[in-house]
Design a protein around this nucleic acid. Structure first.
Lengths: 117, 117
DNA sequence: CCATTATATCGACAAATATCGATTTGTCAA
DNA sequence: TTGACAAATCGATATTTGTCGATATAATGG
């Protein structure tokens, strides 16, 4: 995993929308392309809106992207999300910072599932 | 600590502003009244704006409030913030959920510092 | 090539929100 | 009770942001 800087405001803004959180739930543990997502959101929003949200999530470092022919697959970056949450606790809840195990401490030997889990 | 429900969207929206995060930093580990905060923000915003942000933070459960005469003291609720971060990881990063120790598991015997730390 | 499909981008619009000055509400001290 | 101060609320404004339809870009298959 490439080094990624945590920006607490950017992170929070990325999460601060119901639709985006729904997209994140859908992208958790799986790779989906844009139309997959549009279908799963079942008429609530349409394609340009999904693309818009994916861009925001990508800018925040919260999704990984993989181009496969004319399809673009997205998946939630769970590790970075965990790092961001840890940074929030470190920044804003120092009394509790010891309750979060830093990600890099548990990364050793981690299995990377890659495409399609 | 009273039971408090986590709403991931409300939590993220509360954090999704630079000024609010600055206020949260100032309220970390100390109790400040509104004018204290206005002074510490050093001209960036003025009193009604600070009150507005405090209201948002209160609605999200992120600050504790204590009326003391005509002063109103606020302090960051570190525990709830930690719980919210844990909920985010549980929701969106299940592969990493074991890396966060649930707050209720470490609350036993915790020292409550109370007013003025 | 061309028609088709997938996705990003653009322009417009509406809703949400951050900010401020002015005012109101609430509390105290003399 | 009154004058002063602390903080919330109100109304207005500007900015940001979510959404959409239309279009552009890009890749594919025939």
């Amino acid at each position: 995993m490439a080094f990624m800087q945590v920006d607490p405001v950017l992170f929070a803004k990325a999460l601060a929308d119901e639709t985006r959180q729904e997209i994140m739930r859908q992208l958790c543990c799986v790779w989906l392309n844009v139309n997959d997502l549009v279908e799963r959101l079942d008429g609530r929003v349409n394609q340009p809106t999904v693309s818009h949200h994916l861009k925001k999530l990508e800018e925040a470092g919260l999704v990984a992207v993989r181009q496969e022919g004319r399809y673009r697959y997205y998946s939630l970056n769970q590790e970075f999300l965990t790092v961001c949450c840890g940074a929030l606790v470190t920044n804003f809840a120092p009394d509790y910072r010891t309750n979060v195990i830093p990600v890099d401490a548990i990364n050793v030997g981690r299995i990377d599932r890659g495409f399609d889990g």
